[in-house]
């Protein structure tokens, strides 16, 4: 066989070059991302001490911690999860069980997927319009509700996906024994999909843990410890935002520490969610 070696060589060299670029892209991409985490660990651990968890945010120039911000973040995250999860699970249940394949389901799935990546700052504006304007003041309630709107699409998506993974033969077996639909759903489908649905909630919590934009003008911020749900409440992301952009070195240091806390939480939740689904899939 006669081969044109010049063309062959050119093709090979070109291929080498592109593959080298691909290696370079992978290495540089991963390098930058590890650099970010590395800086975060380095700068964040420096400021980590008991004070961070036991004292409230300080005025510039004095010592303090992040207690009020951590408290506020936990409260509003819990509130958002508690409001958003049940609605999301019910909606996902409709899409996978009662309304499978219906027009409503297709529409909801499409809209939900868009809401999943819609800019969160817009959700903040929405909640500002419906709650803050009406109540005439910023509040932790409004912050929690805006987070709930971000939880909702994540939970809807995972609930539907996980319920669709449950084999129909299980539903049919249960129905053949005479169980009404709600027992099939609550006692058969939910049980089979439980690990996956919990994963969805964990991912949703991870998603809202670091959300800043929607809290900026719903929960606002509070320099002091506040447990009043009707008043502005401090929260980690907004405190980080404010402190990082301030000219005070102590504040910037606390911002890094806060960022580290958020990242550790988010990573732990994501890894937990992964472990839950992967151990599940090995079983089946």
């Amino acid at each position: 066989m006669n081969m044109n070696l010049a063309i062959y060589r050119r093709r090979r060299i070109f291929n080498r070059a592109i593959m080298l670029l691909s290696w370079f892209a992978a290495v540089s991409g991963i390098f930058v991302l590890t650099l970010i985490l590395g800086t975060l660990l380095y700068k964040g651990f420096g400021g980590l001490s008991w004070k961070v968890f036991s004292e409230t945010t300080p005025p510039p120039g004095s010592d303090g911690g992040l207690l009020n911000a951590i408290y506020g973040s936990v409260v509003m995250t819990v509130l958002g999860t508690v409001i958003g999860t049940p609605i999301g699970m019910l909606a996902g249940t409709y899409m996978a069980e009662y309304g499978r394949g219906s027009k409503l389901t297709l529409l909801v799935r499409f809209i939900n997927d868009i809401l999943l990546s819609a800019p969160s700052i817009v959700v903040g504006l929405f909640v500002y319009e419906i709650m803050v304007v009406g109540m005439k003041h910023f509040s932790a309630w409004a912050g929690g509700v805006s987070l709930a709107f971000l939880v909702l699409p994540v939970v809807v998506r995972t609930t539907e996906d996980m319920l669709l993974l449950v084999p129909d033969s299980m539903r049919e077996a249960s129905a053949a024994l005479g169980s009404p639909r709600w027992i099939v759903i609550m006692k058969v489908a939910y049980r089979a999909a439980r690990a996956g649905m919990i994963t969805g909630v964990l991912l949703a919590v991870a998603r809202i843990t670091g959300e800043t934009a929607p809290l900026l003008f719903t929960a606002l911020n509070n320099q002091f410890m506040s447990t009043n749900m009707n008043a502005p409440m401090a929260n980690l992301p907004v405190v980080i935002f404010q402190f990082a952009l301030s000219p005070y070195v102590d504040w910037q240091k606390l911002a890094w520490t806060g960022a580290l806390l958020i990242t550790i939480t988010v990573l732990a939740l994501n890894i937990g969610a992964r472990a839950l689904t992967s151990s599940r899939s090995k079983q089946s």
Binding site: A206, G210, T212, I240, A244, Q252, I262, T263
Partner: peptide, 21 residues
């Protein structure tokens, strides 16, 4: 896995890194 985990890192982390580093 690493890339999917990084997709979950909140944007404020990228912001603070962008500002200081």
């Amino acid at each position: 896995t690493a890339i999917e985990l990084l997709a979950g890192i909140p944007s404020i982390i990228y912001g603070i890194w962008g500002l200081f580093v």
